[in-house]
Write a protein that binds this DNA or RNA. Structure first.
Lengths: 126, 126
DNA sequence: CTTGCCCCTGACACCGATGTGAGCTTTTAG
DNA sequence: CTAAAAGCTCACATCGGTGTCAGGGGCAAG
C-alpha cells in the first residue's frame, strides 16, 4: 500500500503520515525507487495515533507509549505515563464539563426559558 | 486595582491580561500615568475567560460571546455560536472518552489484570 | 535622593501539527 | 511514447496563547 492509499483510508493527509514517520510513530518499508510501502495495519495505527492526538497527547508521549500499546509490554516508565495521561484526560474532561455547564446556562438565558414560546424559538434556530 | 493584583487574584500572568485586553475581552480604565485600573469584577471575568479558553474557544469566539454572557442579550448570531460551541464541546468530550477508554484498556493489560497480585502492583505505582 | 518594585509599549521566540510550494523522479493511464 | 497523477525531500509558513527581553516611566519607603 502506498502513502496515498493510507491517507485516503485513514482520512489523514499525506503530509501528516510523513510527519508521523519522522516522529517515529509509523514505520514504512521502501520500494526500490524510494516510495513508502505500508502494511494493512498501518491504517489502524494511524487511527490510533489520531485518537491519541485528539486526546491531547503530544507525539513524544505517543511514541513512548506505542510499544506498550502494540505489544502489551510495559515498563515502570510506560505505566507511570499511562496513569498520568489518564489523569490529565480526566481533568480535561472536567474542565470541558464545567464550560459546557456554563454554556448551557447562557443558552438557557439566550433562548429565554421563561417565555412560553421558547420551544418554538429553539426550533427556529436549531 | 492594578494589573498585578488582578494577575495575583486570578492566577493569570500579567502578560495574558494585556493580551486579553488587546483581544477585546477585558477592559480597563487608565490612571493619569497610563497604568491600567480594574474593577473588582475583572477577576471574575478573567476566570470566565480562562474557563472558555480551557474549553477550546478561541479569543474571537469569546469576544463574540461575551456581551451575551454578561448582559444576557442574545442575537441570532450569538445563539448560533452558542449551540455550535456546545456541540463542539460535546464532540470533544466524546473523543476524550474514547481515548480514555483505550488508555484504560491498555492500563488493564500493562498492570496485568489476570495476575493475582495485580492490585498490590498498582498500589506500588500509584 | 535613591533604591526597589511595579507598570508601560513593542517586539521577537516558542511549540506542534499541518499546509504549502519548489524542484525533481516514479508510476500509471491513454 | 507521453502526459497526468502521485511520490520524494527540503524548507518555510501558520495559528494562538504565552514567555521574555529591552528600554523607559511612575511611585512609595528609607
Amino acid at each position: 500500500m502506498r502513502i496515498g492509499d493510507v491517507a485516503a483510508r485513514s482520512g489523514v493527509s499525506v503530509r501528516s503520515l510523513r510527519y508521523y514517520e519522522e516522529q517515529g510513530l509509523l514505520q514504512s518499508a521502501r520500494s526500490a525507487s524510494g516510495q513508502r510501502l505500508y502494511a494493512e495495519e498501518a491504517v489502524d495505527r494511524v487511527q490510533l495515533i489520531q485518537m491519541l492526538y485528539a486526546a491531547g497527547l503530544p507525539s513524544r508521549r505517543i511514541q513512548e507509549l506505542l510499544p506498550c500499546v502494540e505489544t502489551g509490554v510495559s515498563t515502570e516508565h510506560t505505566r507511570t505515563l499511562l496513569l498520568a495521561e489518564r489523569e490529565r484526560i480526566d481533568r480535561q474532561m472536567s474542565e470541558l464539563a464545567l464550560a459546557r455547564g456554563k454554556l448551557d446556562e447562557i443558552i438557557g438565558i439566550a433562548f429565554d426559558y421563561s417565555q412560553p414560546c421558547a420551544a418554538s424559538r429553539i426550533d427556529q434556530v436549531a
